[in-house]
């Protein structure tokens, strides 16, 4: 017996028949839909590597049962950039060396996008540090992550001001 759900995934509607109610959003993305950008670092909401946006907000996809998300809008790292042009957060992570091994990076970037959308941290280093603390980086790229988020946040604010 399958359970049908609908998701808007990276802007496109998807009708999905879940073969198992236990499937988390993370495992749905990774093992069934081929979207392996979000990573499984702990599978228990303790590392942030699986961060995606659901209905515009960053969440840990490893703790969300997919079946419960029927109708939701999901944005993953694969849907962030348009074509070859990088999203400002992605570009900033490269420019400021905001990663080393790159495993936690999709989660860091989606979390940063969420943080900037929340609009509370701005370019305040301490608020960015706190706001990004749900994403562990074992390589220790935190200094670069801070610079990247600060830079991207500033640029995105400017862009909004200009618009």
């Amino acid at each position: 017996m399958t359970i049908p759900i609908r998701l808007t995934l990276n802007g496109k509607p998807h009708a999905i028949d879940l073969d198992d109610p236990r499937i988390t959003l993370l495992d749905l993305l990774r093992e069934r839909l081929g979207l392996t950008g979000a990573k499984k670092g702990c599978d228990r909401g303790q590392c942030g590597a699986c961060t995606v946006l659901v209905d515009g907000k960053r969440i840990n996809s490893c703790l969300q049962l997919a079946v419960s998300l029927d109708g939701a809008e999901v944005l993953t790292i694969e849907g962030l950039s348009e074509g070859d042009a990088l999203h400002p957060v992605q570009a900033a992570f490269i420019a400021h060396d905001g990663f080393q091994c790159g495993f936690c990076t999709p989660g860091q970037i989606m979390s940063a996008v969420g943080l900037i959308r929340e609009g509370k941290a701005g370019t305040d280093p301490e608020r960015i540090r706190e706001g990004m603390s749900g994403n562990l980086c074992r390589c220790g790229a935190y200094a670069g992550i801070l610079e990247a988020v600060k830079d991207a946040s500033g640029r995105m604010e400017q862009r909004e001001d200009a618009a």
Partner: peptide, 9 residues
């Protein structure tokens, strides 16, 4: 409490 991701959920 927790992290921004967990608080959002």
């Amino acid at each position: 409490g927790a992290s921004a991701q967990l608080r959002n959920a």
